[in-house]
Simulated assay, not measured.
Amino acid sequence: MENVSMMWRSDEPGPEGHGGRAVAVLEDGTDAEPILCEYTVQDPSSPRKGQVERFTTSYWWDYDGEAARQLAVAVRPVCDCGWEGAERYPALLDDPTGTEGDETSGPYGEWHAHIQQVLATVR
């Protein structure tokens, strides 16, 4: 398995539809809603130079309390299949790897355990 920042995928056969990620959790315990972002295209070679581009993001590290954005105090793991991790883990905005964990700890570890359970049922 590979821990790719924000989106986790299993490279083992069988768990299609089981991409995971860490979701930002706010101080009141609720999951953060997606943030609407916009920027002006600055690239002089772009035909869209000067145009405003809009997109939404839900990367946990974008909830940093800056520029009127909400502040993530924790993260929790979720999976595309609908599974949600039970634990909350501190959001360390200056340490993404420490926040997401590894195969044995943190939200990635909890998601990884979920994937192992899924694999055990398809083998």
Rank of each mutant, 00 (worst) to 15 (best):
A120H: 05
D31Q: 11
D43V: 07
D28F: 01
D80Y: 06
E53P: 05
C79N: 05
T40I: 09
R21E: 10
H114G: 08
M6C: 09
E84N: 15
S5K: 07
G20S: 04
T97R: 05
E84Y: 03
V73G: 04
D28C: 11
P15N: 10
V75R: 06
T57S: 15
R9D: 05
S58D: 14
C81W: 06
V75E: 03
D80K: 11
E110T: 02
G20T: 02
E33Q: 13
Q51T: 14
Q117W: 10
E12L: 15
V25K: 11
P96R: 08
D80G: 13
T40Q: 14
Q42I: 08
D64Q: 14
E66T: 11
V118C: 01
V25N: 10
G109M: 01
Q42N: 12
Q117E: 15
W111F: 06
L71M: 08
T40E: 10
V23Q: 14
R88P: 00
E2S: 12
S45Y: 14
N3D: 01
G106M: 02
E53V: 09
P96C: 09
E38D: 15
Y89D: 00
R21I: 03
A120D: 06
K49W: 05
T30V: 13
G101S: 03
H112F: 12
W83C: 09
G17C: 08
G106A: 03
N3P: 02
T104V: 02
W61H: 04
P15T: 06
V75C: 06
G29A: 12
D102T: 00
V122H: 05
S45A: 14
E33C: 05
Q51S: 13
Y89W: 14
T104P: 01
Y39L: 04
E53N: 15
P44T: 10
S105L: 01
C81H: 04
F55W: 14
H114E: 08
Q116N: 04
R88Q: 02
S45M: 15
T97L: 03
P34Y: 11
E103N: 04
D102V: 00
G106T: 00
A86M: 07
S10V: 07
R48W: 12
F55N: 03
G85K: 12
W111Q: 02
V75H: 03
V122Y: 03
P47W: 15
D95H: 08
M7Q: 11
M6E: 14
T40F: 07
P15W: 06
E53F: 12
A32L: 09
A68F: 08
V52P: 01
S58N: 14
D64E: 13
V122D: 02
H112T: 00
R123E: 09
F55E: 04
S46C: 06
E110W: 05
H114I: 02
T104Q: 10
Q116K: 07
L93D: 01
V4D: 08
E16G: 13
P47F: 12
L26S: 04
P34L: 13
D31C: 08
E2K: 15
A86L: 05
E12Y: 07
W60P: 01
E87K: 11
T56I: 08
A74S: 11
G17K: 13
D31H: 05
R21H: 12
L26C: 06
D43I: 07
A32H: 11
D80H: 09
Y39N: 06
M7Y: 11
N3Q: 11
A67W: 12
V73K: 02
